[in-house]
Write a protein that binds this DNA or RNA. Sequence first.
DNA 1: GTATGTTGTGAATCATGGG
DNA 2: CCCCATGATTCACAACATA
Lengths: 374, 374
Amino acid sequence: MGVVLPVKTRRARVGSQAIAVDRIIRDDCVAAMRALPDACVDMIFADPPYNLQLGGDLFRPEGGRVDAVTDDWDRFDTFAAYDRFTREWLAEARRILKPDGTLWVIGSYHNIFRVGSALQDEGFWILNDIVWRKANPMPNFKGTRFTNAHETLIWASRGEGSRYTFNYQAMKALNDELQMRSDWVLPICGGPERLKINGTKAHPTQKPEALLYRILLATTKPGDVVLDPFFGTGTTGAVARRLGRHWIGIERESKYVAVAEERIAASLPLDESAMTVMASKRTQPRVAFGALVESGALAPGAILCDARRRWTAIVRADGSLAAGTETGSIHKVGATLQGAPSCNGWTFWHVERAGALVAIDVLRQDYLLQHGDG
Amino acid sequence: MGVVLPVKTRRARVGSQAIAVDRIIRDDCVAAMRALPDACVDMIFADPPYNLQLGGDLFRPEGGRVDAVTDDWDRFDTFAAYDRFTREWLAEARRILKPDGTLWVIGSYHNIFRVGSALQDEGFWILNDIVWRKANPMPNFKGTRFTNAHETLIWASRGEGSRYTFNYQAMKALNDELQMRSDWVLPICGGPERLKINGTKAHPTQKPEALLYRILLATTKPGDVVLDPFFGTGTTGAVARRLGRHWIGIERESKYVAVAEERIAASLPLDESAMTVMASKRTQPRVAFGALVESGALAPGAILCDARRRWTAIVRADGSLAAGTETGSIHKVGATLQGAPSCNGWTFWHVERAGALVAIDVLRQDYLLQHGDG
DNA sequence: GTATGTTGTGAATCATGGG
DNA sequence: CCCCATGATTCACAACATA
């Protein structure tokens, strides 16, 4: 029970203690999670089974039912069993997740509604549901339904108020400067990426690395600890290593563990420069407007106006603005003049430089570069 | 209670009896369904409240306020209350559905997992989940999540063994002779189709007719009876009439009933030319540069240069470029380096392949061929 | 009339840190 | 817990206005 394999394991600090990371735990997922301390991982990616291996088939292929139990009884029993299993691992997942951590689960219509309800009941707060639109799905051979061409992911924070990680600018950069949407077009895992043993696929549901790449890039930071309780062939670990995230994989079947170990050992970490992503302005150091006045970048008495020259204001010595009787911060005066609930003064106000209007945000960037607080 | 409006109602045979069709029942949906006999409708399309649980006001970057769905009919105190409501209407829906009938429900991540679990528990058998990918969704104004760009539909038969209607060839014809997939790209309801009263939208959540058109064409036969227990402004009725299906709408609010009546009376049966217009216009495949990075076609850290090797840049993990202190999209960095107002990064940037420079546009073409965005 | 620019809006669980 | 100041943030269309 609970065999910890001796991979090049490291330790990551979690509060006062440290947990071993970058390793595979060969065990049942609930048992393995029980051995982990509270609030020790930043993100969990879970690709749970669609049917339980324990108590017979949950989701039968069309016409596959053979036993004589009445429909109602059978159905209630099997859904209930799946729900129990789901609630059990979700509860453990929530316990070991840090307060501001998030959970990803992937599934299909067979199980995703059970999982979604269960995680809401456990207290998780859904942030998005994401549709993985498969570029090359398997056709519906019988022509009896719509081609099942997508899978669903749920992204949820530990609770309603938590302050989760979302690398907005990185996602925007990845999507040609447009906001990343909730529908992702990605090919299924095939070609050389698909792991094989003696010519047959090593795992029936290996996920493409591109999917995990986007997930990790969007919702974790370098150095974060990512847990995958249904590790399989270790896609999560391979991508985490490449992106400089720590990972823990839990997998019950030793043949998958072996495949995953070999795979991850062969994956190469990216170097620092390549891993860098577009930073959000929210994470940049703050510059007080007054600092621009103090440093001489903007003189007291200078005239500011908005991009269309509808309003003007005068810079005062203490870094406040005056526009008529209205005085206050660059944000407050901008908001008041427009009658808007709020205003980002940095992008609203401009100053004339060489005949053209320049947003004072540009002066702020210059200031940041000169006073080099990177 | 339960006022039946005297529209040009007809009667449809249901076994030995006949029920009044092509009419709106102004009543609570559960009460109205209770008054209908067992197994009397062929299909049910339901657009129940989503239980959005919105916080305070949300303002757009330019200062406008988002007109949110804050109506009483969308407010439930707890998930348990929403579940009770859901199970109640689903149970009645299943009773009045013919044995080979099917149910459609539309929802978002706020409610669809509750609905999906509940209908499985009630005995419905899920045939597909369908993703409506909105061509023009509302952005995420605060940059806090992925743009919520889709809604989910569930299509289910009354039970596991039922012989439901699926017009496979009609769907294939509608999709340029390719199998219709489980993800549908359709614009949201706007323009002249969006019903207004004194210039403001008549209903906050009016669905596009194209959505109902595809649903009715796929899963009903001419002459079938379609029930919509949350009728709203009557999109289901209008499309059913155009396609020669009978319909029954249930709607509690008389202002919506009035709008729907007028609308359906004005709707015309469909002629052939209109059908060809509805046929899918394939969306242009658009490849983000980031997709090449994600897919591994170009590794983070790769060096790009222009055709004459005057400038170089490094590819970062999120698909942005870095050249010295300059960072941004392939287009922006290309433009900045050249001092040009704009630049097509696809043709400007090159990568070395077998000793020769290849424009990254070539990689894009390869990507399209391999992943054939259909 | 044509081209261009401005404004409005859609089922939305939409901020963060310091005092 | 609340309150306040700072300041980050939008895509595709349709409708209408201006040139």
